[in-house]
């Protein structure tokens, strides 16, 4: 019955690397279903207000992290400057790759309208993207895709968790406007 305690110990020792369901199941010699069940119970136990850490699933691994409401206190302890966030150029490039992968540099540049070597270099060095092959065709250009670190960096479980890409089209906007005016007139008549 101390299985939950063992899982907690394993996750504590693994720190930022985290552990997969599979690794935990292998260490405890139990089924992955049982692990999922225990994880659920652990998660709930951490939900309580007097706990400072919680159990999250990011990039396919389970990790123990501090709760975000306590960040201001932790920041008081921070000594070395926090790592800088991504530049706008890198972030835009990354967004394009995240939604359109696998994608070539030329395709990225076409969407952005500017050369994109530098942001690509930054993203590669930060291990947020990697080469995932080469496109068929003349030039055989490199294709880029996102990595596990990308999921971790943005706190995502899987790529499916990416918010849907905003769609703009004229009809939708018109419809929205119609709906707005409809509602407005409804409210006005009710008001009368």
């Amino acid at each position: 019955m101390e299985k939950k305690a063992i899982i907690e110990a394993l996750l504590f020792a693994s720190g930022e690397e985290g552990l997969s369901h599979k690794q935990i199941a292998a260490a405890l010699e139990i089924s992955e279903e049982e692990v999922s069940e225990l994880i659920e119970q652990l998660k709930q136990a951490y939900e309580q207000e007097e706990r400072g850490i919680m159990l999250v699933e990011m990039a396919g691994t389970l990790q123990l992290v501090t709760k975000k409401e306590y960040a201001p206190y932790l920041q008081k302890l921070v000594e070395s400057p926090t790592t800088s966030s991504l530049s706008q150029a890198a972030l835009e490039t990354l967004a394009i790759i995240a939604y359109r992968q696998p994608i070539t540099r030329a395709e990225i540049e076409e969407i952005r309208g500017v050369k994109s070597d530098k942001p690509l270099q930054t993203l590669l060095a930060k291990a947020l993207i990697k080469e995932v092959g080469r496109a068929e065709g003349t030039g055989r250009p490199i294709l880029y895709g996102t990595t596990k670190e990308f999921l971790d960096y943005f706190g995502l479980k899987t790529l499916d968790e990416l918010p849907p890409l905003p769609e703009f089209n004229e009809e939708d906007e018109e419809k929205e406007a119609d709906l707005f005016f409809e509602k407005l007139s409804e409210q006005l008549t009710v008001g009368e």
Binding site: E16, T66, L91, G113, G155, F168
Partner: peptide
Amino acid sequence: LLEYKKFKEAAKELRKREEERALLFTKPPS
């Protein structure tokens, strides 16, 4: 322009998540 605008919005969303994720502290592996 429309295509670019789409990804500009998406990048904004990613920025929000980047900031939120930065609030969660972990520890180095033992």
